[in-house]
Design a binder for these strands. Structure first.
Lengths: 185, 185
DNA sequence: CGCACCATGTAATGCGTTACATGATTTT
DNA sequence: AAAATCATGTAACGCATTACATGGTGCG
């Protein structure tokens, strides 16, 4: 998947590994993430496969920059992926739900404390999607040659994040209330 | 994480790798998953670490069964994990959102077809959480010595799945409607 | 003075999937 | 006759994280 993301992002404009990582951290980060080291190794791999090319620019005050661009083969690989239909819902992983599944084994007070903490964290995230992400999308749209249609879909992913967090909060509030009633009737 | 899940499940009762896998597929499957081969290797690993023990029972008509049980050290490791607070929201991955992020690069008709297909898949999943999972929880509760408190949390994970899918559907319906308006005004 | 930013990479290790290998019994 | 269930595992590979290694500039 990271391979596809890198091919997709580099179609907007050529970038260095470092630039890609910073872009990743503000845009795609909410539904996919990668460490800088993985970005570097995956870029190298894609170049080895002929899907990217790179050229090095020397700089005297800072380290050299290696800028990657997509080749024709890279563009083709990306579009192949994009046009082949996805016929199964993604198998997802929610580590915190594992904790909830086994929460009966923990003392009730500990469980409640953990749930309240997690609720606060998701409240913060919801706030971020509502008040910060719209500005981020604007910023990215200005520094990247993106179409209006791109922005429609970027905004759709933001709304997904917002709705996901709002939904998560509702669910947690209900669970916490239920447990509170059971502990202190 | 699979290590923790195996330790958690084996505390209800001793099981073979095969039994664990079938239990995994109907319970935890909605927020974590693993292949049978990984279950076998992880069980072996946990035994090597002294967190599980196993004994083999010969059978004449079927292959031998290796039944695993949790050791004291295993119980301790599980409770350590359970009592150490989770202070960051999980970094999640939604592969389909990557597709949406780049959907502007696909022909509008292709994008709409894919979105409608995915909507149907999530509709099926919602139906499953609403009408099948409650029965599954009952079944598991009957074959496994689980407390009432366990069932409260298992039911909570079911509600999470239900709410997640309902929310996903709402989001997709909105996006599809928005795109339909733009294609054929 | 220390931290963040810019900038690149490698090496070791761990987690997870796919493919390989076997084989009897039961259900459709 | 074919598929699903029961039952175990290994080997190769790929994806991802952590740790290691380097070093100048700018800001508070």
């Amino acid at each position: 998947m990271l391979r596809i993301i890198l091919l997709g992002l580099l179609q907007y404009r050529p970038m260095t590994g470092y630039e890609i990582k910073t872009l990743l951290d503000v845009s795609i980060n909410h539904f996919w993430h990668a460490k800088l080291s993985q970005v570097y190794t995956t870029l190298k791999q894609l170049e080895g496969d002929g899907l990217l090319t790179s050229r090095v620019e020397a700089q005297d005050d800072r380290p050299d920059r290696r800028t990657y661009s997509v080749t024709e083969a890279g563009r083709a690989a990306f579009h192949d992926w994009q046009l082949s239909p996805i016929v199964e819902p993604d198998p997802l992983k929610f580590p915190f739900l594992v904790w909830v599944f086994f929460a009966a084994q923990a003392p009730p007070a500990v469980a409640l404390t953990q749930l309240r903490l997690m609720r606060d964290l998701h409240r913060q995230r919801l706030h971020y999607y509502q008040h910060t992400t719209p500005d981020v999308i604007q910023d990215v749209a200005e520094t990247t040659p993106a179409s209006e249609r791109d922005i429609i879909f970027w905004e759709a992913t933001r709304r997904f994040g917002e709705a996901f967090e709002a939904n998560y909060l509702r669910w947690m509030d209900e669970l916490i209330t239920q447990l509170e009633r059971e502990i202190a009737p």
